[in-house]
Amino acid sequence: MSVPSDMEAHLRPLMLKALDGDAAAYRALLEELRRHLRAYFALRLAPALAANGDDLVQETLMAIHTRRLTYDRAQPFTAWLHAIARYKLIDHFRRNKLRMTLPLEEDAAIFATDDSEATTARMDVETVLATIPGKPAELIRQTRLEGASVAEAAARLGMTETAAKVSIHRGLKSLAARFGGKADG
């Protein structure tokens, strides 16, 4: 995944063209957003609910479409996008009466526009991932941060999907044990 300032520089012009009616730019934008949103929701849904991620991605894309008039052209696009994705996530939790285990204010890093803050958050993730063995860490990075599917990540590392799933699960578990989070986070 590119760093947020690149995302802003890349996505905002696409959005501005889309608002002027450029369907090709709009399609390119939605495809990019689908990738980013997959990663965004995958990171925030417990594995047991990961199947809802695709629904959330679709609902969010639809909300972006029907509510695009609320994007103020003078403002950062990624901030607008994040606010919508976050609303959809909270709405999903509320509908399913789930308790959030993470303070949501702190997870803005993925779409944040402040370069230094996002870079720091990214470095934190890298630091944390460095504490577990290379293969699980790489799998987690690809599937949870970069939006790849388990099958894609497994193929890239030359392992079976099942083995990759087990490896991701163990990796997350040892991370959870080390940093005191919930095992299902």
């Binding site: 369907a23 399609r27 689908r34 695709d54 991605v57 894309l61 695009r68 008039l69």
Partner: peptide, 25 residues
């Protein structure tokens, strides 16, 4: 699956001039 959606949304795109929200409200 989501490709259909993106096709659909891209086909449904109409230009959204600045201040559309202000005018509507």
């Amino acid at each position: 699956m989501a490709d259909d959606l993106i096709d659909h949304l891209a086909a449904d795109l109409a230009p959204t001039p600045p201040r559309t929200l202000q005018r509507r409200l």
